[in-house]
Nucleic acid binder design. Structure first.
Lengths: 339, 339
DNA sequence: ATGAAAGCGCTAACAA
DNA sequence: TTGTTAGCGCTTTCAT
């Protein structure tokens, strides 16, 4: 039962299986690969031998010899701790598993350098395609992957400077939905706390809000805050906004992390209580009665996976840029209880 | 810029790098592997050639030839959508990255069969060790991995029927903490909604509550509910409990998913508002002012990674069963606001 | 339907 | 310090 070096039996090889089944190496290979031109009898004996020896094909050797790629697709995200990304990963996996494909997730830690690293890492692992939520503005580097014959699909943030498929949300319309909801709610001092300024998702959401707010007399440009990339800075921003002489009556959180920071700030210092509207939909938003503008993350992931699979089937197909709608989920305060 | 089959240049091989540098295959190999006994001049020319050709070592071939294992550690969890597991994954990665190791996550989908599958999958990918949050009660199957020379570390749920390292929380003490908190709060009708009945974490938390509650006059055995494995069933349980003629004054949620279900139910039907206490600490618990009994997930993951690395260093060391403390985080209601 | 030989890209011995 | 010769375990020609 112990794992001393001694009882670490070397794995049986195909040669051994073949020997045991009394056939040639190649025949054993054929049988286990499920190829045709193998007599039922031979097949049976090879399978039996393999089972007895507890044989498992050495994938590395197999892929090396055949020059094929692994039955897997890679997914690069910035932080698998973010529910948005894990939901995405789940959706991708749900879509590719029925096709016999595996998901290989990689963490770029929102660093361009790491992203480059892990993308090649995935390529080294012989993934058939890569799906990425890129943390960089310029995606030219991904051309290297494509040159290696690996299709790349961009998710949530569309491809820039490289020809590839993308699936994104209609963030601009999302921004409009958010703004209209608050304007309709009578708000005229609206703060927006956004992620990194260079992020396309942020910029588009912002632009959408501008589409609506700039047509009104609402004050909001002064109440704009950016680069609140993590919960802590979002909280700090919120506190700053709430301590303003004339604080906003509504705060829009640019994404789910920011929303958490906003809520933490409001919870801590309940001096003024602005209305809150979030982008993305963390699972707890419903419990807190927070209205959100969100897209279907499940659909986002599935669509990305579909594009990846489709390109594997036909390299020449036109690149697609799929845009998924966002919608407003309007909620009203409820007062949860605790002990 | 397009990815037509034609411009998919075959990757350069070591042979080509060697040729270009004007050295032998092996010399090139040595240079790139950073071995000693390579003259500075040779090293430079090989590196240059490799750079010019954009050479990348074929890992599969490398591992095959050397018989070594990849610099990676596998982590098996039941659902990477669960924040508890993603936090765990993050912690493991944080711990092993400085050692030059990569994390390879695998999803068992809480299925024993899948778990067996992915564990061998990881082994096929030549991971050096496997860390698992097992969804099965009997871990004898993991002996196969150990026989393959791959150390296994059990996290959150300790090893059963197999000799291996484990890191778990002191769930029994956690149960006691939860019970005492509620008793001290004056509660005498306490409901506990738990996960699958066979789960050790659940059983221990339950036992701990029994340690305390059975010494009191509190009613709770009748208010016990199990197998609320997902949010929906936890919500259903809660609704059932709240509609009882004499509903509980406090509800204990057995884990973070259950807690969400409980909160959803309470939010929806605010007829009676019991006190709520959770196990684990979802990020939103603070915002909602929910008291929880939790352990340090970061420490859990790091400790597991340390055990895995330690065993790689010394196969003969004694198996450890690390037990990490749980603590009560007592919170009081606050009333978050929304719009 | 089966087998023999060659080789995928690389590293490990052993020379030189 | 460098090169040569074998393979790692498997799949592919091409025979048979």
């Amino acid at each position: 039962m112990s794992t001393a070096p001694g009882d670490m039996a070397p794995r049986p090889t195909l040669t051994q299986v073949a020997a045991r089944a009394g056939v040639s190496l190649k025949t054993a290979s054929r049988a286990l690969a499920g190829e045709s031109y193998v007599s039922a009898k031979t097949l049976a004996s090879v399978l039996a031998a393999a089972a007895e020896l507890d044989y498992r094909r050495n994938t590395a050797a197999s892929l090396l010899a055949s020059g094929r790629l692994a039955d897997s697709i890679g997914l690069i995200t910035g932080d698998f701790t973010n529910p948005f990304y894990s939901a995405l990963a789940q959706a991708v996996e749900d879509e590719i598993r029925p096709q016999g494909m595996h998901l290989s997730v990689a963490n770029s830690r929102e660093s361009a350098e790491q992203e480059q690293r892990v993308s090649h890492d995935l390529a080294d692992r012989q993934v058939k395609a890569v799906i990425t939520v890129s943390a960089t503005a310029d995606h030219a580097g991904y051309a290297q992957l494509q040159a290696r014959g690996i299709p790349v699909v961009f998710v949530d943030r569309r491809a820039e400077n490289v020809d590839a498929d993308s699936v994104v949300f209609d963030n601009r319309e999302g921004g409009r939905l958010a703004a209209r909801h608050l304007i309709d709610g009578g708000h005229r001092r609206i703060a927006f706390i956004g992620d990194y300024a260079w992020l396309p998702t942020y910029r588009q959401r912002l632009a959408g809000m501008g589409d609506v707010l700039d047509e009104t007399d609402a004050e909001w440009r002064d109440l704009l805050r950016t680069d609140a990339h993590d919960v802590a800075s979002a909280r700090a921003c919120t506190i700053e906004l709430l301590t303003l002489a004339d604080p906003p009556t509504a705060v829009v959180a640019g994404n789910n992390r920011i929303l958490l920071g906003v809520m933490e700030a409001i919870t801590e210092s309940p001096r003024s209580s602005p209305a809150v509207l979030g982008f993305d939909e963390p699972e707890w938003a419903r419990v807190l009665g927070i209205s959100v503008v969100t897209g279907d993350v499940e659909a986002l992931g599935r669509r990305a996976a579909q594009l990846a699979l489709a390109r594997l089937g036909d390299r020449a197909r036109e690149f697609e840029n799929v845009v998924l709608p966002m919608r407003l989920i309007s909620r009203t305060s409820t007062s949860p209880v605790r002990g």
